[in-house]
């Protein structure tokens, strides 16, 4: 969706136009759902969060001066998914989950399946890859959403892709 299309649809959405809302939903449902699903790893829960994202969008549309509506919505999706994940596992911190993934204690058998490979990445690396490649966000926006320096986001992305290549070849690369 071009910039002027976004502006027109958001203006209509602020007036409560349901047609504009549905067009925005069709445009962003797939990237938003993918971002949420990669964090929660649960389709039913991801659908619930996706509903929450778009209900919130309709009731509180982004302000007129928002630079990137796409990034705005994907950030909302990301934040709500993270909140949901935290509520699901109150006894386990995100740092602990990430450390466990890194240590290999979680079952990360090297199946040659892309989704499993992505799921085996450290949580932040998976989110960088998903926001950039599935969300279609430039690195700058991805880094901002994840509160990382741009250089760090770039480096971690580079490392994640190399890791995925290695996993998808059974470690041969």
């Amino acid at each position: 969706m071009e910039r002027h299309d976004w502006n027109a649809r958001l203006a209509a959405l602020r007036s409560g136009d349901m047609t504009a809302f549905e067009e925005i939903y069709e445009e962003l449902k797939t990237p938003a759902y993918t971002v949420i699903l990669r964090i929660l790893h649960d389709e039913s829960l991801a659908e619930d969060v996706l509903q929450e994202v778009f209900v919130k969008l309709y009731l509180s549309p982004p302000p007129e001066n928002v630079r990137s509506p796409r990034a705005y919505l994907l950030q909302t999706a990301h934040n709500l998914a993270i909140d949901c994940a935290r509520r699901r596992k109150p006894a386990v911190s995100f740092e602990e989950v990430e450390a466990t993934a890194r240590s290999g204690e979680r079952d990360v058998e090297l199946k040659l399946d892309l989704e499993n490979a992505i799921a085996s990445l450290p949580s932040v690396d998976s989110q960088i890859v998903t926001l950039h490649l599935n969300g279609g966000l430039p690195f700058r926006e991805t880094a901002r959403i994840l509160r990382l320096p741009l250089g760090t986001a770039l480096w971690r992305y580079h490392r994640a892709i190399a890791r995925l290549r290695s996993l998808l070849t059974g470690g041969a690369v």
């Binding site: 349901m18 549905e22 939903y25 449902k29 797939t30 990237p31 759902y33 993918t34 699903l37 991801a46 659908e47 996706l50 509903q51 778009f54 209900v55 309709y58 009731l59 892309l114 989704e115 992505i118 890859v129 490649l133 599935n134 892709i161 190399a162 995925l164 290549r165 998808l168 070849t169 041969a172 690369v173």
Partner: peptide, 30 residues
């Protein structure tokens, strides 16, 4: 071995689409 470009393309193509009932549920809530 998959090339870097192949891996990137595969990730892009692995996006997941939600069930159609999601939009219906959203409209009901609104």
């Amino acid at each position: 071995s998959p090339s870097r470009a192949q891996v990137v393309r595969a990730i892009r193509e692995s996006s997941r689409t939600p069930d159609s009932r999601v939009l219906e549920n959203i409209k009901k809530k609104l």
